[in-house]
Structure formats: structure tokens, C-alpha cells
């Protein structure tokens, strides 16, 4: 049961949030090849370690935001607003 810190509302239980999968995806244009389009649709990162992903505070403010989470330890390294670039975690 994770504990996430919504950038707008503060720290809340995982129960209040919805998981939205990998973040920082770039949506290809209509001119993209089938290969690029299917990569965008189906090939998601599945790292052992830090994953940049998006969550929504569904039972709160309803805002989406980004989370950098370790998929092994579930440690949350960063929470940052939509549209911001991946933070440097080194």
C-alpha cells in the first residue's frame, strides 16, 4: 500500500489514486510508420528499478502527475507535475 504525495493535495494513501502507466510518452503523428505506432501503443518500459509513471488523484483533486518509483523497493524518488521533464535522480 503505497503512500503518494499529490503535488496539489499532499500525502495520501494509494487508495485515493489511480495508476496510469508509463509517463513521458511522445504521441506519434499520423505520418508515423506502423512500427513506431505499435511501439507507442504496446511496448511499455518495464524496468527493474526506477520507473517514471503517471498517477491520478482520482478521489481527490482529479489531477494527473508524475511519479518516479522504484519497482523493486517501491521507494518514491520524485513526484512532479505533468509536463515537467524527468528529474535527474543521480
Amino acid at each position: 500500500m503505497l503512500r503518494l504525495s499529490c503535488p496539489w493535495c499532499g500525502t495520501r494513501d494509494e487508495l485515493e489514486f489511480s495508476f496510469g502507466g508509463e509517463s513521458h510518452l511522445t504521441r506519434p503523428t499520423l505520418a508515423a510508420s506502423d512500427a513506431i505506432w505499435s511501439d507507442y501503443l504496446f511496448n511499455k518500459e518495464n524496468p527493474k528499478g526506477i520507473h517514471f509513471e503517471r498517477w491520478m488523484h482520482s478521489y481527490g483533486c482529479g489531477r494527473w502527475f508524475n511519479v518516479a518509483r522504484d519497482t523493486v523497493t517501491h521507494e518514491i524518488y520524485a513526484v512532479y507535475k505533468m509536463g515537467l521533464p524527468k528529474p535527474d535522480l543521480d
Binding site: M56, S58, R63, W64, M82, G83
Partner: peptide, 13 residues
């Protein structure tokens, strides 16, 4: 409504 919000907030803010 969640679908529309996701597109608005994440893709076309």
C-alpha cells in the same frame, strides 16, 4: 470523463 481529463491534462494541457 476520466478519459477526457487524461487526454487534456497529459497530452494537450
Amino acid at each position: 470523463i476520466a478519459w477526457l481529463e487524461e487526454w487534456h491534462q497529459c497530452e494537450w494541457p
